[in-house]
Amino acid sequence: MRFMSAPSIGQFIPGESFIHGLDPRCKIVATVILMTGLFMASGIPDFLLWFCLLLLCSALSGIKLGVILRSGRPVLFLVLVTVVMNLLWTPGTELARLGPLRITREGVLLASSMGLRLLFLVIFAGMLMMTTSPMAFSDGLERIMSPLSLLRFPTSEMAMMMTIALRFIPTLFEETDRILKAQISRGADFESGGILRRARSFIPILVPLFVLVFQRAENLAVAMESRCYVPGARRSRMNPLKWRGRDSSALAGLALFVVFAIFCDRYLFKAILAWLAMR
């Protein structure tokens, strides 16, 4: 068993697919559009449409659907809590009763759409990270935020910080795993005792981890400096971002999909349901 393993979200999977080749700005904007669209989705049929989009993304990125879906795993617990809360505390037409607990028709609908929405949000964010190298991602973000630099906001430093943070996620998980194992080998016990005792038992994990992070940061700063990095100075790029026709088309296609999905959700599905009910 590995006590701590790196989360699958945030892990770039190198590739040469259509989606990998899109401009990171395009992918970031696309993800924002998708998220907005998801907030407007409400019905189960609508989520079927979104699922179809996910299938399309899988085909266009060359990443297996299973791997894409796995990026939703870290939030499964959160999704479960959301679903249960909505299921039990939504007033409306009663479907079932279990002692003081009432499950309503509205509750089922709300719970399922909330849960699915949350899941899809995380999966699409994961999709962005899986197909965009951290460097390209922070480059893209830097360019999108570049108007802010007119207000003296340090966008390029922020982007560099993000690159480094993403680079160190796997390393830090590995280190945490090692420290955890080392302290368990010295008899550390994280399972018994009251809350206070348990909280205290994490000190032997947190202190070494902080020490390590600060040491790493210091060494990295020296290494970056020796590699001619000067904060705030103009840097060039090996792969300058290039907005191509396919970026525009991809974005347009996606926007159309979102509008279509919202239209379906608001009018089409409701009309079909109403028509079915009349029959």
Partner: peptide, 26 residues
């Protein structure tokens, strides 16, 4: 007893004594 690679990276206590007391007191 298992001593990991670079075991000094597990230090957390303020004194050497507290560091050495950690395992037996557990």
């Amino acid at each position: 007893g298992l001593v990991f690679q670079y075991p000094e990276t597990q230090f957390f206590a303020e004194t050497v004594r507290a560091e050495i007391e950690f395992a037996p007191s557990n």
